[in-house]
Simulated scan of single mutants.
Amino acid sequence: MFKINPQCSYCEKEIKGNEVVFVKMRYPERKGMTEIKAFIQYEGQLICEECFNKKSS
């Protein structure tokens, strides 16, 4: 299988397990998704907590 290396869309920092992230994405039309990590990686924009807080301030 392919190895997914999630990164922040802004600072390109690698996202680790149990880290707080924010995802910007469209709500999916289909139902029954099983590979949520892959779906978020390819259809969403991951934002680390630090970048999200900088942008919100």
Rank of each mutant, 00 (worst) to 15 (best):
M33A: 06
Q41V: 02
Q7W: 03
S56Q: 09
M33C: 02
C48F: 03
E35I: 09
N5Q: 09
K37Q: 13
E43V: 01
V23S: 06
I47Y: 02
Y27T: 14
S56W: 03
F52G: 00
L46W: 12
V20I: 15
C51Q: 01
I15N: 00
E43H: 15
I47E: 04
T34K: 15
Q45W: 03
Y42D: 12
V20Q: 04
R26K: 13
K13T: 14
G32F: 11
G32D: 10
F39T: 11
M33K: 07
C48L: 06
Q7G: 01
K13R: 15
G44L: 05
Y42S: 11
F52M: 11
I40E: 00
K24H: 11
N5L: 02
Y42R: 05
Y10R: 14
Y27D: 07
K24P: 00
P6L: 00
M33S: 07
L46I: 12
F52S: 00
S56I: 00
I40C: 04
E14I: 12
I36K: 06
I36L: 08
I36M: 07
G44V: 03
K37H: 09
K3V: 14
Y10T: 04
F2W: 07
E43G: 00
S9G: 14
V20Y: 03
I15P: 00
Q7E: 14
I4W: 03
N18F: 07
E19R: 02
G44T: 04
F2Q: 08
N5R: 11
S56P: 02
I47N: 03
C8Y: 00
F39G: 04
E49A: 07
P6F: 00
K54D: 11
Y42L: 09
C8E: 00
R30H: 08
N18C: 02
S57P: 07
R26I: 08
Q41H: 15
L46E: 05
K3E: 10
F2D: 14
E35Y: 12
K31R: 12
Y42P: 01
K24V: 07
G32M: 12
E12K: 15
P6D: 04
M33R: 11
E49Y: 04
S57C: 07
G17C: 01
K3G: 02
I36R: 08
G44A: 09
K54N: 10
E35H: 14
C11F: 05
E14P: 04
N53G: 01
M25E: 06
R26S: 06
E35F: 12
E14D: 10
G32V: 13
A38H: 09
K31E: 12
M25K: 11
K37S: 13
M25L: 13
G44P: 03
Q45V: 14
E29C: 04
K3L: 11
M33I: 15
E43N: 13
E12C: 06
E50C: 00
T34M: 09
E14N: 09
Q7C: 06
G44C: 09
E14H: 05
M1C: 10
E43T: 03
K55D: 12
I15C: 01
F39K: 05
R26F: 08
A38K: 13
E19C: 08
Y10D: 10
N53H: 06
E14L: 10
K55Q: 14
Y27S: 13
Q7F: 05
S57N: 15
Q7A: 02
